[in-house]
Amino acid sequence: MTAASRQAMYKFRLFVAADTLNSAQAASNLHALCKAHLAGRHEIEVVDVFKDPKRALAEGVRMTPTLLKLSPGPVRRIVGTLADVARVMQTLGLDAEAA
């Protein structure tokens, strides 16, 4: 993990399906994770697929909730409630940072 990425701003986009249980869980899991590891350097945009289906189509989002990590680095896509914190951290490239 480079120093640059350590300072980098994390941009997330979370696609949710209104206030379904899965989506609510994902949102709260994401907020908790950001608070713990990315305090002060994260942005979260929440998109409701029912309110804005065009964006869901454009991003090819089929399953909700879907989390997109837009930056830094390659775009990552995680589907589900984000309950498995270790797995999520690994995918986002935060595991080394946390260690």
Binding site: A17, N22, M63, R77, L82
Partner: peptide
């Protein structure tokens, strides 16, 4: 293929589209 899955999900996104 590059999709990571963590926990339960649903198909609302697809249905909305």
């Amino acid at each position: 293929l590059d999709l990571t899955q963590s926990g339960d999900f649903d198909l609302c996104g697809m249905l909305a589209g």
